[in-house]
Design a protein around this nucleic acid. Sequence first.
DNA 1: CCTTCCGGAGTAAACGATTACTCAAATCGT
DNA 2: ACGATTTGAGTAATCGTTTACTCCGGAAGG
Lengths: 338, 338
Amino acid sequence: MSKYDALNIKQIAELSGVSVATVSRVINQNGRFSSETEARVRRVIEESGYVPNFVAKSLRTSKNHVIGIIVPDILNSHFAGLVLELEKKLFAHGYSTVICNTNESIELEKKHIDTLIAQQVSGVIFISGTKTCKVTQDIPAVYLDRRPASYCEPSDRVLIESDNRTGGYLATQKLIESGCRNIAVFCSRDMDTNQQARFIGYQEALAESGLSCDEAMTFDLHEVSILQARDEMLRIFPSIPNLDGVLCMTDTIALGVITGLHELNITIPEQVSVTGFDDAPLAAYFQPPLTTIRQDIGALSGAAVESLIKMINGEKLESQHVVVPVSLVVRKSTRQQV
Amino acid sequence: MSKYDALNIKQIAELSGVSVATVSRVINQNGRFSSETEARVRRVIEESGYVPNFVAKSLRTSKNHVIGIIVPDILNSHFAGLVLELEKKLFAHGYSTVICNTNESIELEKKHIDTLIAQQVSGVIFISGTKTCKVTQDIPAVYLDRRPASYCEPSDRVLIESDNRTGGYLATQKLIESGCRNIAVFCSRDMDTNQQARFIGYQEALAESGLSCDEAMTFDLHEVSILQARDEMLRIFPSIPNLDGVLCMTDTIALGVITGLHELNITIPEQVSVTGFDDAPLAAYFQPPLTTIRQDIGALSGAAVESLIKMINGEKLESQHVVVPVSLVVRKSTRQQV
DNA sequence: CCTTCCGGAGTAAACGATTACTCAAATCGT
DNA sequence: ACGATTTGAGTAATCGTTTACTCCGGAAGG
């Protein structure tokens, strides 16, 4: 038997010569008790190494101090970074996290959500929520990083996202500055709202420079993977003789594009400039190091945690929709200004 | 009010016209009940969307079907891959997971473990356990991927690890085959048991080829990071004129080494061959693609989950110590056989 | 001195499941 | 046809907390 097994609040109460209610009050610092009583109880707890049973507490309060995080692909370093930050910040607030990897499967996502509900989680963070994520209105939840397709502005949940439009704008502007005039765009087939916003930024930058937006320069990837991006690059290259820039919707795509260009013996950035999006930890170590848009993981996760905890505590939120600024990180995959 | 809020087993019982005990029996498939009753109850559950409250179940049974995973750094893709697989397999067995990132801090690890105990987790998986990880003997736990320093073979917990010695041997052998005669080793300062084993494999391979093991060729990194490895490479290169191979203890280190060599204008593999360890997802996309040792994530995670679940169910384990084979993945960072 | 109030602490009813006991009815063996 | 056994299903205790009530005694106020 471990020291943890047997000890419960009742035994602490007996040992300190008070009732369970008093012990509970001392532990949770609510209700009234004299300071002598408090000292006595604290000493007993200390000496016995008593740890309150969270499960019982959760049952009683219907709050388990666990936050569920729904994430499509924890292997993607952008998501992994986000999750790590969320976990750190939530833990500091006394919350544990359950990370649910959905592998982009709606099926699995539903199962996970059922499990989370059964566990009575205190709240849920949806990272890049799928189109169908639905959780009962009464459990606190925020959307992070991607706007659900069904999202409607005024009354829906809290939404926290990067300023994707500006990101797309900045990256495109950089390419144009680098002298690019024929820019291809690599995105995923079913562009999520993030990519759509980035695309708008791209169009704006083109328009501003008096360049036209040629639909034939947009290429859809069936899925976002290095290999797919590389294959697509190899496939399309012959048909676009004057290609001089590629705007990639993610760093992963950029890595695939770079790999493909290497195989084609195209030099970067002399012949073709490439930009990514996310600023993955490895982006600085690509060959060449990648010019990309950095998302502010700290701010994104901070806003998400803050909003969620306010919701859990029933406090009012000052804003339903947080847009976090992004920044351009210039490395060597784009030419110096010409 | 959500449909989930109000529903409890009692209401299901009323709706189906039976007692709570019967509903519970149907749900858990134990005890007796007629097939008509079962059908009726199932239909009510189906229609109402009832999800049993795990918290109450946990309280009653003292098993919460949650597994804690203690991991030092989820951003490391080797660990991330392991965690992902574990999560997937555990979920298939009906377990949720709580992922605890310790950031290599013993402090934080202790806090996490206390939380896990308070949550009454059914079991714990220590990935690359630190030197001090201690959890009460009576909660099922396995060590995965790294042997704790305090580990003692016969009576301690289950340990699952890769065949690191063979890995080190194979990588070194490959370097020797590629014509390398002056091989540097890059490892972390406080070599964990994995790296120690890899190092032994390295020595064996050297000995077998009649090469001597020069202590001056071993370089310690203060921490395992791309940048540290790159810096170290730049620092040491001038002092080793005839360097022709680098055995890196992880892929992360290899990427740093490659980056450093690029900056020194050394060609890989013509002038220097490099090997890694892990076969990270991106290893194939390094420039050049990295020759490395692949760890069998599927087998590692499978063995861990299987053992843990057997322990939880009180079944006997056939082996306390599982060693998973590794394999050499040849890419372009080593020369073709000469 | 009597009423009112309040600080301190205890009693017991939840929370939502599981499961040991019961018990009635149905089935069986002889 | 009658006792024995099996089957199906209900009753209620229990897991470890929290918290709405209750109660007592002393301080304050008139």
